[in-house]
Nucleic acid binder design. Sequence first.
DNA 1: CCCGACATGTAATGATATTACATTGCGAAG
DNA 2: CTTCGCAATGTAATATCATTACATGTCGGG
Lengths: 132, 132
Amino acid sequence: MNATHQDLTRNQTLVLDTLAKADGPLSAYTILDRLRGDGFRAPLQVYRALEKLLGFGLVHRLESLNAFVACAHPHCHAHGLIAFAICEDCGQVDEFSDAVVRERLGAWSAENGFKAEKPIEIRGHCANCAAA
Amino acid sequence: MNATHQDLTRNQTLVLDTLAKADGPLSAYTILDRLRGDGFRAPLQVYRALEKLLGFGLVHRLESLNAFVACAHPHCHAHGLIAFAICEDCGQVDEFSDAVVRERLGAWSAENGFKAEKPIEIRGHCANCAAA
DNA sequence: CCCGACATGTAATGATATTACATTGCGAAG
DNA sequence: CTTCGCAATGTAATATCATTACATGTCGGG
């Protein structure tokens, strides 16, 4: 396991590069449109590549946006619970991993027998947009 | 503002009652199907009612599931940041509001100028499903 | 009575995601 | 070398979630 970038197939590489070049989250259909010049024709080509990339930890899915982003820390696969701060005004997404939030959610999990698995998405307003 | 239950229209009442009776989150189209006997015919009837109920704080939207739940604490409208623990195996949803998580996220927000607005959704496995 | 505001009804369409099935490429077993 | 098998890929159709556009109904204040 622990696929390196070199193990990626052509389609996976194209999708990952598209996400890495983007300045924010992209929907699957937006990725599709950007890759039509490279021969992409159907949503499934994108979804299949994303499925693998998610498994490799190279990409995250933002469920609240129905969109995807390249992982901001692709070299440290081991980080546990991460979180995204999503600005609902400008769409900016900030990936972070706060030790105290992690620890505290871990404590809540232990009390309740719940085991967190996926990134947490916090929606609100970033500094810039809150000021405006 | 602060509409009471009595201010609800017929459609809003039907939708809220459907969610309240359900034992878990429902999609808008599931609600629609359950209300066909009451004259509902189009998705918009459901979405419009949900829009109001969300505004009243009587219903929450689970963005990661594209589904909706009745608020577990409809009488205390003032609670700040709440969270849902969503089991990805059985679909059970646990609404809670942990003071330390709230406080800590507040601190992160202050450091980063980010202002959280919406409930947080934590996905993972509940005690029962983790055991299995 | 008439108007305005808001709730409702209906149809069409857009946006996101999956299922089903055919085809291709390529390494390993024989 | 050939054949088998597996994973990736290609293509079409369809399922699921959400919104736009426009028409109609209801009800209280002027």
